[in-house]
Simulated scan of single mutants.
Amino acid sequence: MAPAARLRLVYFLYYGNVGAFMPFFAPYLRGLGFTGEQIGGVQMLPSLMSPVVATAWAAWADRHAGPARALALATGWAAIAGLALPFARTPAAMGLVVAAMSLGDRSVVPLVDSVTLEHCRARPGASYARIRLFGSLGFVVLALGTGWVLSARGSRTADPLVPVIVTVLVAGYALAARRLPATPAHADRPGPRDMLALLSDRRLGLLLGGCAVHWMACAPFHLLFGVFVRDRGLPADVAGLGMATGVAAEIGALLLFPRLEARFGLRALFATAFLGSAVRWALLAGARGAPAIVLLQLLHGLTFGLFWGSATAAMGALVPGRLRATGQALFTAIVFGAGNGLGYGLAGAGYDRYGSVGPLFAWAAGLELALGIAAMTVLGRALSAPSTTRTRGGG
């Protein structure tokens, strides 16, 4: 299999697993009798572990093995740990299995992105966006397919097929990652002082902080959208269709992003992503019927597509190439780790308090509104300021 095709397959299966996991795993745990706080606690574990796991694998990759080798080892570990997932039935057992899987899978995004970026850098005709696009396609296919299958099986409250699907997909992307192309080694291997230099860059700090707050505001959706659909008395395939609709809009936003960036600049795009997300959450808080819930997911093109394109462009401008894996890992650790972990914990506790997901979306809308205003002022000025990052190898 050609390197680009193998990379597409890794993205397809990895994000396909996210598409199967995100809308259906929380309802599965709810069916096992887990409380909202227990659901949030279990699914918060990967986010809490992400800062250490992602940066450790990335630092080791940059200094020793290379991202491709590190990715093969990390995904292999996740696949082995995932074999126990269908047999975990209590909060303690589920937490143990999820934590074990997280020791590997929390590194997948920064490592595969690093391999893909270097692959495209060496081949002028290759495009990161076109390869990464297969991740979005995988999300759509698996979200829709899983929803249809679960609905056909009667939308059971704790369908054992959910963890089986997740286990199979993790094993699939682990096998696909075994023979990815090796990335060229840098003569000047980065050290701890290089990571400290990245962390001391005020612009990078503001970017990571703003992105983390945005991802925290997305936590009620990521954690409890499937529960929200079920609480509205709708079948499981509505959750899958909503997810697929959102990712279709995400794909469109990613394809249009180069033109949008050239015309409007990152400041305006970040503000649009955050303010558009505020509208999405505010409307979703009161939505009840399947058509409204599904159509509102078109705003996911702003919540993730426009946001991800802007964040990737900003990280590419702020992080030197020799620190690519480390920079991507810092983003994963702070945004998808700390931001997501805090959001999951608050969302789980909030669901127990309110007994409904709707009020959590209302809180998320207020947070996104404040962030959108900040993006037009503080973050906008920071992105246009001179860089303060200095590393031994330049940048």
Rank of each mutant, 00 (worst) to 15 (best):
A99H: 09
L260S: 05
E37G: 14
R259P: 02
L346V: 12
L367I: 15
A364K: 01
L383E: 01
F24C: 03
L254Y: 11
D159M: 08
R203S: 15
F225P: 02
A347S: 15
R178T: 14
A292D: 03
S356T: 08
G19K: 04
L71T: 10
D352T: 03
V227H: 03
L283E: 03
L117P: 00
S384G: 07
P46A: 06
L306H: 02
A174I: 04
L367V: 15
L318F: 13
D105S: 12
G265I: 08
G394I: 10
P23H: 08
L330I: 09
S102W: 09
I165S: 05
A278C: 07
I373F: 14
V42H: 08
L255K: 02
M376A: 15
R353E: 00
W57D: 05
R202D: 03
C211I: 15
G242C: 05
D237G: 00
G286Y: 02
R353P: 00
L7A: 02
A88F: 04
A158N: 11
R263E: 08
F331T: 05
T389P: 00
R259K: 11
S151L: 00
L369M: 13
R353K: 05
A325G: 04
M22L: 15
G19Y: 04
A385L: 03
A374G: 10
L83P: 01
V378P: 00
P51F: 08
G82H: 06
T391Y: 08
R203K: 14
P184W: 11
A143P: 07
R121C: 01
L269C: 11
F274Q: 02
A273F: 12
G327H: 08
G265Y: 06
A329N: 05
A311L: 13
L369V: 08
R267T: 15
V108K: 02
H214K: 06
G316M: 08
T35M: 06
A5E: 13
S107Y: 09
A152L: 13
P67F: 04
R153K: 11
V170G: 11
L299M: 14
V279H: 00
A248G: 11
R189N: 11
Y11L: 07
E368P: 00
A382V: 11
M315V: 13
P320I: 09
R267H: 02
H186F: 13
L318P: 13
V52Y: 01
L360I: 12
V18K: 01
F139R: 02
E261V: 02
G337S: 09
L175G: 14
Q43I: 15
L85N: 04
L29S: 00
I334N: 06
G343N: 09
T35W: 07
S136V: 06
A2P: 15
L175Q: 05
L296H: 02
R288L: 10
T35H: 07
V18E: 06
R232N: 02
